[in-house]
Nucleic acid binder design. Structure first.
Length: 834
RNA sequence: GGGGAGGUAGCCCAAUGGCAGAGGCAAAGGACUUAAAAUCCUUCCAGUGUGGGUUCGAGUCCCAUCCUCCCUACCA
């Protein structure tokens, strides 16, 4: 009898897997590739290798994909299960600025730490395919992909007002600014006009929206992407400004309400505003514009209950009314509830139809003409009277087109993607600006493929420059390029945002050592699309939308064979932690609290605190370190616990009290094998094993990891209670079932019961349906749906025999006439009595 | 305001429309032990947030309602 010694077992098998390359996934063209096997590509969202190391949230998703990867190998798939590092990014750069250490140095150290942490958890990655987005071998191809997008005409430079964060010394994408503050760090941001690289993602808006339909993705993520793309159908129409030779164009989803349009509002930033504002109102409007400029979008939103605005002194002509009609001239206001960044930055206001317009009209005492009746049908609207919205909109559009006033229009909330950053630690652009007489002349040239990668120059000073120019501008020798024909160029000194590397990494995994192409067409055709992609919901929009966009472009270029990269997506739930809240509602650090069973107090003061669930955070000292868990219980226990916490998609707090439970299961399993083996199989155990094989297989298909583990626990409980040991052969079959979940122990057990093959490649055991049911079963007998008795029947009894047995069991309980008998074979019998 | 996911035992979590319980935690009792730990055995505990409906039969389907969590928001 020996103990379950995970500390000895786990490192030994980890080394074995590395030495044997047990999880190498040969692809087309590689030695050992078997083209006859089906493929399965299971991918994790690769991590940013932070200095803090792995968090227990990471292994939740990684364990799930690893279980599935290992299961698919047993089913005979060629499984591609790779891991890499999304290693460009701000934290490494900021650390570099603070310490003077080059980001490449800290990144390499962090990567080493992450890799060894992941290997200590026994994940079955093909480490030969490891990639690092900051390696020149990798970003060479990121630059190459950029060139493909550029050559498709999808990249352009623009001088646009962008979010500028002076603290970070960089511009940020709209998506990276929340409530006027940087998403990372929470620093205040302001709008500044700067020359930037943009991608025309809006050209793909329709397809990005439509193709969501066929994806096996969570509804919540699809909904978020739909909202982000924000397609809305309506019309654009022109309003001529009275007495001025200008026309403002408005976008509306309700052109049918034009009869009720009693004023117009333009955004304070509207370019035409200055041309039509009256002299009397000029100062007031200018003051309002100045005030609006200083407001963040958050501040604008905060004021939503109290709208503000200023009359411009100008009037627009409502085109639906004839000359002389008193309703024809409508005042134009400027107000910050209209955003320049959406639609045309100008709206027609229909206070009877739109709540916001109504508020504004009431505040500024503007007319509110009634155009909708109690049934929300149009009234006072001439040729639209009595029509519903659905009927009236096309009719009005028809009228607008016929009178050359406007046309049908589809608007998207999606904006073009701001793709440049003023940072050091990112991919350089493969772009040269032509310089004549010391000045850029506006001509842009791409770097030849043969000259890729454009390597990141080594700098001493990574911080932003005084004048806001990117840090790369300091590398003067690097910036200046003289062509063979004598032309002088300056390199682009902006760098790409962190999204770049993650937009196509799943393609590089297919063929990571290819030095002549980003990936081979053969490998792409075989492995793509990703069959299962698991990651956090925080990437529901940005990463997943950007990656889909690049992929569609590559598809249009004929470089990939699928129009979508990720067929099935699953969001793992968050691993939270317990926290404590004092009476003033403030969260307190976990080490200041004592007590249990619902009574918790502060150690120092005795003040009562309330237990709740919150995100893990350093300040609450409730962060769980996977290394500590591994040290105390082992990697198999950690894996099993993460998979057993509940469904993968559910968030749940880390509960240290539950860890011993799964650890005990592994110990019990060990003892079942360690107690020796029987010569002949026990029938009960054999039946239990068949049941277990079926349940674990079915659950794995549905990613029901927690219930699969429960089934294995059930079997081990059965085997523990049995006086008869497993046979060697039963032990081998169970080892295969356990291998995806607790691979180290499974390898050890397989060896204990005499296994000599490569466990990871063994076929998944089969089960016999006949072994799943006992000879006789007990079924409920109901009267009017209420349980009255039980009957014992043969498992294969036919309907009549089952009813007969039920009648016997219920004899005397039935008072009344039997109207109907419901017999569900093998399930139950119900007598309907009146 | 809009969208998404949920409410089952003291806790986490199961249950193709068919006996509410698979599994784990916690609790209680017992066996083993000089004792403790570990281990093993046994036991306790809910009628599924609420109100209707469909059905022979509803945790499961439909409608309404309450609560929780997440996302999003002057998007015209």
């Amino acid at each position: 009898m020996a103990d379950y010694n995970f500390k000895e077992i786990e490192p030994r098998w980890q080394q074995f897997w590395l030495d044997q390359q047990s999880f190498r996934a040969p692809g087309p063209g590689d030695d050992g590739f078997d083209a006859s096997k089906p493929k399965y590509y299971v991918l994790d969202m690769f991590p940013y290798p932070s200095g803090a190391g792995l968090h227990v949230g990471h292994p939740k998703g990684y364990t799930a994909t690893d279980i599935t990867a290992r299961y698919k190998r047993h089913q005979g798939f060629n499984v591609l299960h790779p891991m890499g590092w999304d290693a460009f990014g701000l934290p490494a750069e900021q650390y570099a600025i603070q310490t003077g250490t080059h980001p490449a140095v800290t990144t390499a150290a962090n990567v080493d730490n992450f890799r060894s942490q992941l290997q200590a958890l026994g994940f079955s990655y093909d480490w030969a395919r490891e990639i690092d987005t900051t390696s020149p071998d990798y970003y060479k191809w990121t630059q190459w992909v950029f060139k493909q997008l550029f050559e498709k005409g999808l990249a352009y430079e623009a001088e646009i007002p962008v979010w500028w964060c002076s603290k970070l010394g960089t511009v940020l994408a709209n998506e990276e600014v929340v409530d006027g503050h940087s998403e990372r760090g929470g620093h205040p941001c302001e709008k500044r006009p700067l020359r930037q690289w943009m991608f025309k993602i809006t050209e793909y808006a329709d397809r990005l929206l439509a193709d969501l339909e066929d994806l096996d993705w969570p509804d919540s993520v699809k909904a978020m992407q739909r909202e982000w793309i924000g397609r809305s159908e309506g019309a654009e129409l022109g309003f001529v400004i009275d007495g001025v030779d200008e026309c403002i164009t408005v976008f509306t989803t309700r052109p049918d309400t034009l009869f009720g349009a009693s004023f117009c509002v333009v955004a304070p930033e509207h370019p035409l505003l200055a041309s039509f504002v009256s002299d009397e109102q000029r100062d007031e409007v200018a003051a309002y514009q100045e005030q609006a400029k200083g407001k963040s979008d958050l501040q604008r939103a905060e004021l939503q209950k109290d709208k503000s605005g200023v009359f411009t002194g100008a009037y627009a002509v409502n085109p639906i009314f004839k000359d002389g009609d008193p309703r024809q001239l409508i005042p134009i206001y400027t107000a910050d509830y209209v955003l320049m960044t959406y639609g045309t930055g100008a709206i027609m206001c229909v206070p009877d139809g739109d709540e916001r317009d109504h508020q504004f009209a009431e505040k500024y005492d503007l007319p509110i003409p009634k155009i909708l009746d109690d049934n929300q049908c149009l009234c006072n609207s001439d040729f639209l009277d009595g029509l519903t919205k659905e009927q009236a909109v096309p009719k009005m559009i028809e009228w607008l087109v016929a009178n050359e006033i406007g046309e049908k229009c589809i608007n998207f909330r999606l904006r073009d993607w701001l793709f440049s950053r003023q940072r050091y630690w990112g991919e350089p652009f493969p772009v040269l600006h032509e310089v004549v007489d010391g000045k850029r002349n506006g001509n842009v040239k791409l770097v030849d493929d043969a000259d890729l990668p454009v390597s990141l120059p080594i700098l001493e000073d990574f911080g932003p420059t005084e004048d806001g120019a990117p840090p790369l501008a300091r590398a003067e020798e690097w910036v200046k390029v003289v062509d063979s024909d004598g032309k002088v160029y300056e390199r682009e000194v902006n760098s790409m945002p962190q999204w770049a590397g993650s937009c196509w990494y799943f393609l590089r995994f297919l063929d990571p050592h290819n030095t002549s192409e980003a990936w081979s067409a053969e490998a792409e055709k075989y492995w793509m699309p990703v069959d299962l992609y698991v990651g956090g919901a925080e990437h529901a929009v940005l990463h997943l939308l950007y990656a889909r966009f690049w992929h569609k472009v590559l598809f249009d270029c004929g470089l990939v064979s699928t129009s979508e990269p990720f067929q099935k997506l699953v969001n793992q739930g968050m691993v939270q932690s317990f926290a404590y809240k004092n009476e003033r509602g403030i969260l307190v650090s976990i080490d200041e609290v004592e007590g249990d069973e619902g009574n918790y107090t502060l150690i120092e003061t005795g003040e009562k605190v309330e237990k709740l669930v919150a995100k893990m955070s350093k300040s609450l000292k409730n962060v769980i370190n996977p290394d500590d868990v591994c040290d105390e219980y082992g990697a198999d226990t950690l894996r099993l616990y993460e998979a057993f916490m509940g469904p993968l998609t559910t968030s749940a707090p880390w509960n240290p009290r539950d860890l011993p439970g799964v650890h005990r299961f592994l110990q019990r399993t060990w003892r079942v094998f360690d107690s020796g083996f029987a010569d002949a199989a026990c029938d009960d155990i054999e039946r239990g094993l068949h049941k277990c094989i079926k349940k674990v297989g079915d659950d794995l298909e549905a990613m029901g990891y927690n219930t699969a583990i429960a089934a294995m626990m059930e079997f081990i409980n059965l085997a523990t209670k049995s006086k008869i040991d497993l046979t060697v052969e039963q032990g081998q079959r169970f080892s295969v079932l356990l291998e995806p979940f607790a691979p180290h122990l499974a390898e050890e057990l397989y060896k204990l019961c005499g296994g000599s093959d490569a466990l990871a490649q063994l076929p998944w055991p089969s089960y016999d349906n006949k072994m799943l049911v006992a000879d006789t079963i007990e079924i409920p007998v109901q009267v009017n749906g209420k349980l009255k008795a039980k009957a014992v029947i043969a498992a294969d009894a036919d309907k009549d025999a089952q009813q007969e047995a039920a009648e016997l069991a219920i004899a005397g309980e039935i008072n009344g006439t039997v109207r109907k008998v419901i017999v569900i074979p093998g399930r139950m019998v119900n007598f309907v009595v009146s």
